[in-house]
Design a protein around this nucleic acid. Structure first.
Lengths: 224, 224, 224, 224
DNA sequence: AATGAATGAGGTTTCATTCAT
DNA sequence: GATGAATGAAACCTCATTCAT
């Protein structure tokens, strides 16, 4: 029973430790690990998890939070280097966004559970903080985008565009996803049945195409 | 304890009875009811449920299936009456689609659970049938759309557009949704914190705007 | 709904049909099939099974009954050809008995369930009939045995010997048996652990040895 | 709701508590109680049971294990005091063994379920440990027996004899047993039908007789 | 006689969370 | 602070049996 007093740094470190463990387990299983597993992987006892997180779901919301922050981090520089012509900007963003997403392979699966699983058992405050932070990042990035493309975007439409971008991304991912173990069977069976060109299309190709269309539709609006 | 031999009609009726019960319970709770609850609500014994559905999840896939079929039913006539000019078509579709969705308030919440919940305990065949049916509807509607707007859509792009339409819709809904019981608090708190114009915006307004942009971006492509 | 009136022959035929189906299924699975499976295999409806048998367990008791009758059928002639010298008789019986048993591979597994499973849900009358029939056969065979070996067996000890023979057989079988799917693993693992010569010994060898000893002990008693 | 950290002693005590509860219930019902019942009888929650046992069946295997250990405990001293003359040894063992068994009235019923019930839901390792332990005890006792009766037993035949002893015991018990609630009716009815001297014979008398014969057959073998 | 829809008891196991130490 | 034993709700699905037709 070691009992060192924890200062804030220690606390943050413990949080990180747990988040890393949870993340690693999630990557392996593609399913929410149990608290016991997370604790074990982090080398602490089950009860200790609840000193850092009020709820199992909080852990994964925090992971999601991290993911969004990282996405934002890679996105912001890209936004400032976007070409200023509408079509080119749309295509460039789509390509950059897709590439950024590839570096965060757990973000979309995690986000897909937000509504149906993660938010189910979350204290209002945590949910509030999460949404505030995500939305704050969105607003900021949106403001940058507006500043960078003043001729293509109305004021305040930057964050709208980015929100819709995320929505389209998440929606497309959910349409293309299916339980990992049966993915090959499903694709094969769908192909055999002649249901064409939908699940076997590479998600990132589809994402780029769709995002380009959304952005074009948005950025061309001003021109009319 | 009535125990008459069931013909196909009876069987369909029993299915309907269970689906209606499940639907009603889902509306109340915004969460998957237990099989026991469904059985009780439908006035049958637990085991009876398993005569019509092999799995609890199948019930909800069937509900989703119904929803998509209904959506398609209201959508198809709309597609054929779309104006043939790009901007007008985009706006008209967005309006019509949003209106159609309003008549199916459970479709989006149900769809949001598809990946994380429903598919976890579904035999491959059921999942396959479901996906095939949904995709089939999409292809058909897409073909109609192409036929109706031959100057605006490349061949085979009708179903792509509709798929992206659905993805954007589902994504936006998931961003705007939150657990029913805390929705008012959340909105209030976000407003108080000055996180603006996002959650308190009416979902259907946002949906129309976003879909219009996506469609515009798609339908204007030809022109270039 | 065909409804031909069943006479006694038909009834017996129906019984046989069900017993055969149950037997075939039991052989496949080495576990009690469900009533639904039996009915389907026999080409009748579930309810029909209960016109011939009051309980699922009755079916398997009947199977057991059959098995005992067949065993008796092959045994009786053997008894009459037994050598009249004790040691030779013991060895000859053991060999013949083991051989007879090989022709009835389901008898022992079925018998092993008698106490813990089959008798659990049996009307008293059925159980009574079963026990009476089995015991009757035993008495008869015992009487033959006494008549054939008057110098080796006291009156009334023929059936005792045969009963103990069966007991020893069944007991040995249960010691050597284990769930079919794990048998190879188990044997391998036991061997690896150095637990020797018990499970990997061939059951029929062991049976012959053990029966020979029991019979010798019995038949030599008189001599002293 | 006491929740002290458990050391090994506590753990063993908790195991014992559950085993005792399970044993008591088994004695009452002569059937496997449910986990819920065991937990209640032991005064703990259902989940607590699974901290000590991985499976319901493990509980009963442990009970069986206990029983065998106790039987072995009473048997070993007896073996060393066996007379060295064959007939006398056989009779003495039979008497002592029967007496030992009387002190363990649940061992035989429990053992009768081993194959058909207990092994169905047991991890291979548990089953393996169990078999190894039982066989180990048998080997040890067999070695003692050989050492004690060197003139009567070939090397390595001690454990064989004991194994056959157990097989005969279990087989006889299963022949004489029937579901507790109907036992009196059955005996009465069998007597009424004139099926004689079998079920109403006291099991332990029969056991002694049969074991004496088996042992005599074995121990006399050397003489020839 | 035959059917097969309906019944509903039955039982296991998992796991997030608590809280005594 | 840390532990991890205890909790106990939760939920599924199977299947022998019945009985209205």
């Amino acid at each position: 029973m070691p009992r060192p007093t924890l200062n804030d740094d220690d606390r943050a470190q413990r949080r990180r430790q747990l988040l890393d463990a949870a993340h690693a387990l999630y990557q392996r299983r593609q399913a929410l690990p149990t608290v016991a597993e997370i604790a074990q992987a982090a080398g602490v006892a089950k009860g200790t998890v609840y000193l850092s997180f009020g709820t199992k779901e909080e852990i994964f919301i925090a992971l999601l939070d991290d993911g969004f922050a990282q996405l934002l981090g890679t996105l912001l520089p890209q936004l400032q280097q976007l070409p200023r012509q509408a079509e080119a900007a749309a295509a460039a963003f789509a390509a950059g966004f897709s590439a950024s997403l590839r570096t965060l392979p757990d973000l979309l699966p995690l986000a897909a559970m937000t509504n149906s699983v993660l938010e189910k058992n979350l204290p209002l405050d945590t949910l509030l903080d999460f949404k505030t932070r995500v939305m704050g990042g969105l607003m900021m990035a949106g403001a940058q985008l507006e500043a960078h493309l003043p001729l293509l975007l109305e004021p305040d439409q930057g964050s709208d565009l980015l929100r819709r971008t995320w929505a389209l991304t998440q929606g497309l991912w959910q349409l293309s996803d299916c339980p990992t173990p049966m993915k090959p069977h499903l694709i094969e069976a769908l192909t055999a049945r002649g249901v064409p060109h939908v699940y076997d299309r590479d998600f990132h190709d589809e994402l780029q195409t769709a995002l380009t269309l959304l952005w074009r539709g948005t950025l061309l609006a001003r021109r009319r």
